[in-house]
């Protein structure tokens, strides 16, 4: 759609240059990341949620489906910090367990998208011609759909479940990484060190994995962290529409839609799951922005 204003993609220093001890691009990036206060806040938010997710069974051993029917829809108190839902389940407990789902879906779907997208992007960029044509057109077509709509279509085919929502989100993200890697490969292919590698008779696979891939890593990592944020939002949206996690799974989007009808009398049932989504996504956005500024200095404001 937007091919008309393609910016030239200059090579970005990649982590394979770490071996130089003084002022390697990796250290330089780390230093600039540490100076970025917002990025540090983002990192702390992510760490907090990861720790809470890991420790959930220790903090709340009774589990996310522990129902106290006498305590239905109780407002926040010292016993239930975030109140209870319509089954008398502690909302804080469900949010802690929900963090496991959201982080898991965000991470796995993005890693899946990176693997598939990188593979297709390399194929398209390195081999060019017909292969490139076919793969690029498929990407164009997928990107022609608003992403949540394509995800809905995929879940409509596979049936609603958390796993299928994950597959849908991963699929929808593939073209983003595919295009990124393709453009990287295209610009790297003509670099002298690749031509040299080919001249000494290096095989394609080796060139791809030892030279082209490491040099494309920085933008993939940046795009990856930012994609986790949108993946978490999309998973929550699918859950909210009833197309993702199914009850009693404590998925945050699903919690929101299940509590909607109680918003008048028990607004806390809706307030806290939404804040949890927003805070996690904010963390990944800040972290991703920081990574971009650190790894790609040209993007700095």
């Amino acid at each position: 759609m937007l091919e008309t204003v393609v910016k030239p993609n200059a090579p970005v220093p990649g982590p394979e240059e770490q071996k130089e001890k003084v002022d390697s691009p990796f250290r330089e990036a780390l230093r600039s990341f540490k100076k970025n206060k917002l990025a540090i806040i983002g990192t702390l938010i992510i760490l907090l949620f990861i720790i809470l997710a890991l420790l959930a069974p220790l903090i709340r051993p009774e589990g996310y489906n522990h129902q106290l029917l006498a305590d239905r829809l109780k407002p926040p108190s010292s016993a239930h910090w975030f109140g209870t839902d319509d089954f008398g389940r502690d909302i804080l407990t469900r949010i802690l367990y929900g963090a496991r789902i959201s982080l898991w879906v965000g991470f796995v779907s993005v890693v899946g998208a990176i693997v598939a997208g990188t593979f297709l992007g390399i194929l398209a960029g390195y081999y060019g011609k017909t292969v490139d044509m076919i793969i690029s057109r498929i990407f164009d077509i997928m990107l022609a759909f608003p992403s949540i709509l394509l995800a809905i279509a995929i879940v409509a085919i596979l049936g609603p479940s958390l796993q299928n929502a994950l597959i849908a989100i991963a699929t929808v993200n593939v073209p983003n990484f595919g295009r990124l890697v393709r453009s990287k490969v295209l610009s790297l292919k003509e670099e002298e060190f690749i031509v040299a590698a080919r001249a000494i008779g290096m095989r394609d696979a080796r060139i791809l994995f030892y030279h082209i891939l490491p040099n494309s890593l920085a933008p993939i990592i940046v795009q990856g962290t930012l994609s986790i944020a949108t993946a978490i939002l999309d998973a929550a949206a699918l859950g909210f529409l009833g197309l993702g996690a199914q009850p009693p799974q404590p998925e945050w989007g699903r919690m929101l839609s299940d509590s909607r009808e109680y918003i008048t009398n028990a607004p806390w049932t809706v307030l806290f799951p939404g804040l949890a989504i927003g805070l996690t996504v904010l963390g990944f956005n800040l972290f991703g922005d920081g990574m971009r500024d650190a790894l790609d200095p040209r993007m700095k404001k």
Binding site: L38, G253, I263, G278
Partner: peptide, 22 residues
């Protein structure tokens, strides 16, 4: 702007509904 991009649209909608109409 930063907080805005991180909030789920359906939650913003629910909150707006709760505050301004309920």
């Amino acid at each position: 702007a930063l907080v805005g991009v991180s909030m789920p649209v359906f939650w913003l909608g629910l909150m707006a509904q709760w505050i301004f109409s309920i």
